[in-house]
Amino acid sequence: MNKVLIFLLLSLPVTGLAQGFAGMGTDVEGFAIPRPDPVFDFPADHSAHPDYRIEWWYLTANLQDDAGTDYGLQWTLFRSALAPGEADGWNSPQIWFAHAAVTTADAHFSAERFARGGIGQAGVTAAPFDAWIDDWRLAGDSFDDMDLTATGPDFSYEMSLTAEGPLVFQGDKGYSVKSAEGQASYYYSQPFFAISGQLTLPEGTVPVTGTAWLDREWSSQPLAENQTGWDWFSLNFETGEKLMAFQLRQTDGTLFNAGTWIAPDGTTTPLANDALSASPLEQTQVAGRDVPTQWRLELPSRGVDVTVKALNPRAWMNTSVAYWEGPVFVSGSHTGRGYLEMTGY
């Protein structure tokens, strides 16, 4: 493995993505901290917030080709600041990195990129919207209408996105609490994207269409010290309803969970802690760890009792910060498709 990856793994004070960073969540050195009752300012808030420690633009998509074959796609741009604020050139304290992946039933392609802020190699502007790192890009005249590209050593894709619904604010109007101690982030999503384009895979180029879900989140204190990882679901039911749910696993074996029920028109209902239960049904051994790739998800208040099953149980992101991320099928009381992310295994 590339040394830089180990280097990063040991060092970045980032993200809810991996175990071992939990201690950083409370260590705030001049970074701004999310406050309840946020007032968002668009399009400016689609851009970067360098005063916060971490931030991401996280897009996942469920795709199908003409023959009905299923695919999953991921494009994520992360920002991680060594110090608050921005500066010119190599002086910038902002570090950018990005992950891209394409998942099929029996293969998982992934790639990652790294960049320094301040020199133009990576960044985000609000209007027109442009989020880029190297040749990877999510950009368009507005946040509702964008093009998406990424390339890796053995795959690439070029997609178009059109929003068919409103932005959705997670948690309490965009203030998403992550622990009983009050760790929180700003969190909104655009789960209504229609997506179409081309995947280039070793077998050739495939035209695909489907739905995509974009999460925007920024914070300075991602996890509480006793939290080891998370399981995150974004599900599109065939009824047009959507569910975002996550649970944070804690060292004492308890869970902290939260979520949002999204009506077809974008109306949101936050889920109370413990309203939801997610229990693993089946483990898959991948990258030397046991990862639950089939789940039972229950939300009694909405009559939801479904099985969530990975399209490819081996959708392991072998990136510097490694985690599981892949498309899932939903069956049971509701049917549909979605994405599952699991960290800290």
């Binding site: 590339n2 040394k3 280097f7 990063l8 060092s11 004070p13 960049a115 320094r116």
Partner: peptide
């Protein structure tokens, strides 16, 4: 961040090398 060999032979960067 972009160096293919990472920071090479540096061994004394402490717990948080980057």
């Amino acid at each position: 961040l972009t160096m293919p060999g990472g920071a090479g032979p540096i061994t004394q960067a402490g717990e948080n090398p980057l």
